[in-house]
Design a protein around this nucleic acid. Structure first.
Length: 543
RNA sequence: GGUCCCAUCAUCUAACGGUCAGGAUGCCAGAUUCUCAUUCUGGAAAUACGGGUUCGAUUCCCGUUGGGACUGCCA
């Protein structure tokens, strides 16, 4: 430990601290929750679109809180003002809403206050935006400064780059530690002098005065992986960034998850290597660390290298949640796919027991997979087909309409006043629960699957070689009121008379009325289309 | 380079140290009085490699190889 710096100097650097740590402890008391209740959080940075890996994190945290009778929070990690993207917070909230994973405690936009971001009423451990928590970070760091556990650092960007280059060329670990930490042991007088040189506007960064020894091992517990040994951290990591007064992730995590009383931190594997630092930080404060669980990544095969790698928020736009929404994937199906990755028994248990569903199936910490999973679109499609196949027709119709109105400009015009016709199209081959057709995957694809029913979207098939005699014979005898047997007998009769196969007659009719060679049951299709439309389309083909 | 994580069919995975290594998706074949989709039946398909420990190893240990993450005043 070094000698602490004086109150006056701290005040000059950071301003007067608003709280004492003891005061914060009182302000954010330990939560009064039943035994075993977990307090979890989803803590994204608002840097653009939501990505499928984020949704995965959100699901796990949501479930762990809910299944244990705990609290699920949303905390926005907006400490990197350079990378912040407008609208990102709205998007995060919107995603939570659409997927049914709304956090209990979260920021909201206050319409009465010009859309200012405030805490949701009842959310007592906020603010939930890190940019609004400066006073908390400053209050904690002030005590560290006073106790000598942290110090102001005047290293410039250029100096740090130089240090990194030197370290790299001599094969040393990079970072500011030991002898490289030039300001680590600056006395109060030296600091004062340096500040005088730099001018009063200059804000130094605040670094941890690390006492870790990398020759020693520190064992850190991960809820799923067990105990992991690391060399102790000796880097004087930045706690408060220079210039903008905001904390780094590590320091914000320490203060936030302590004072928000988070019990379980579930986060991506990319955080595993900072685990020893985080344990060190909690230990230094004398605080109990949360239970950490590091989830494996969601991967893809890189099209350039052919190798498996983490799905990237920056490069893989197909992994964007808004893409899934725009394409009309049923949100529950996406979640079921994700749940089955994190709780692998889900699919099997659900098949055996009908009462098992997405919302009541638990996530077990110890069973969270540790190896990276390839994101499998085909399996997702299967979940979607199953999901839509089990929906009742009214819900299905409603979902398709809602999606169409939101994402397909042409749609509203077409559907208006014809909801019953749409419902009839969607109803085809849905009456027998054991034989429900499963070719609907997304709302978008569902619409295109049944396009030919709409007169405006029907496309005459000019490639097909029609047998006009057959078509003519059919139209003459066609009666929409025929039973399926009568209808089929007429087709057989035509086939016999024209000396063609039954299937040929059917295929001629199919091509004529739908423009396609693959459709569901022809009788049902005709029943939905109605007498006039069927006749009109066939006559159009005959010419 | 350093630190750490991971390793069962193509994919997601199951298997108190004793199973013919199980399931699901995908794929292939057959059946289901018109195509497609369903549904049903069947099929091919895996413990990365090498050492230990043990009567016995997918399981425990070590090494190798492979893959991944981190190595930023980004989170």
């Amino acid at each position: 430990m070094r000698q602490g710096i004086s109150e006056e100097l701290i005040e000059r650097i950071l301003g007067k601290p608003e709280w004492t740590i003891a005061g914060l402890e009182e302000k954010f008391p330990v939560r009064n929750l039943p035994e075993g209740a977990m307090v979890t959080r989803f803590a994204p940075s608002p840097t653009g679109f939501m990505h499928i890996g984020g949704l995965y994190q959100m699901l796990i945290n949501y479930k762990m809180a809910k299944q244990s009778g705990g609290v699920f929070m949303l905390r926005i990690e907006d400490t990197d003002t350079k990378r912040e993207v407008g609208g990102a917070i709205e998007l995060i909230l919107d995603t939570a809403y659409k997927f049914g994973l709304m956090p209990d405690e979260r920021p909201v936009f206050d319409q009465k206050q010009d859309m200012k971001i405030v805490d949701l009423p009842g959310s007592k451990y906020g603010p939930y935006l890190q940019s609004q928590r400066k006073d908390i970070y400053h209050s904690v760091v002030a005590e560290l400064l006073a106790g000598g556990a942290a110090y102001p650092c005047f290293l410039t960007q250029a100096e740090m780059e130089e240090i990194r280059d030197k370290q790299k060329s001599s094969g040393l670990p990079t970072g500011i530690y030991g002898e490289w930490a030039k300001y680590r042991d600056f006395t109060e007088e030296q600091i004062l002098e340096k500040m005088k040189d730099l001018g009063d506007d200059f804000k130094p960064s605040i670094r941890l005065y690390s006492t870790g020894n990398p020759d020693q091992k520190i064992f850190c517990k991960d809820g799923a992986r067990g105990s992991i040994g690391f060399p102790e951290n000796n880097e004087d990591v930045v706690l408060i960034k220079s210039g903008d007064d905001l904390p780094t992730y590590h320091f914000a995590h320490l203060c936030d998850d302590h004072f928000m009383r988070t019990t379980h931190v579930v986060r991506g594997e990319e955080w595993l290597s900072s685990l020893p630092l985080h344990f060190q930080l909690f230990k230094m404060m004398g605080w109990t660390p949360p239970v950490y669980v590091h989830t494996s990544t969601l991967d893809k095969i890189d099209s350039e290298t052919g190798k498996q790698r983490k799905l990237s928020k920056r490069h893989d736009t197909e992994a964007s949640v808004s893409n899934f929404l725009e394409d009309g994937w049923p949100t529950d199906a996406v979640l079921e796919y994700l749940l089955n990755i994190v709780s692998s028994g889900y699919e099997e248990d659900k098949a055996k027991d009908k009462s098992v569903n997405l919302w009541n199936y638990p996530v077990k910490i110890k069973k969270i997979p540790m190896s990276g999973a390839l994101f499998d679109m085909q399996k997702l499609e299967w979940w979607a087909k199953e999901y839509i196949g089990k929906m009742n027709i009214d819900d299905l119709t409603a979902y398709v309409i809602v999606w169409g109105n939101r994402y397909n400009l042409e749609w509203e015009k077409i559907i208006k006043g014809k909801e019953d016709y749409l419902k009839a199209m969607l109803s085809i081959e849905r009456d027998n629960p054991k034989r429900i057709r499963k070719d609907f995957i997304t709302w978008k694809q569902t619409l295109s699957e049944i396009e030919y029913f709409w007169d405006d979207l029907y496309i005459l098939n000019k490639e097909f070689e029609y047998n006009k005699n057959v078509l003519d014979a059919f139209v003459r005898g066609f009666d929409i009121n025929d039973s399926k047997d009568t209808w089929w007998n007429k087709i057989i009769e035509i086939a016999n008379l024209q000396d063609v196969k039954n299937g040929d007659v059917a295929m001629n009719l199919r091509a004529a009325i739908t423009g396609r060679t693959n459709t569901p049951d022809l009788y049902s299709v005709m029943q939905v289309m109605g007498q006039a439309r069927v006749v009109k389309r066939i006559q159009q083909v005959i010419g």
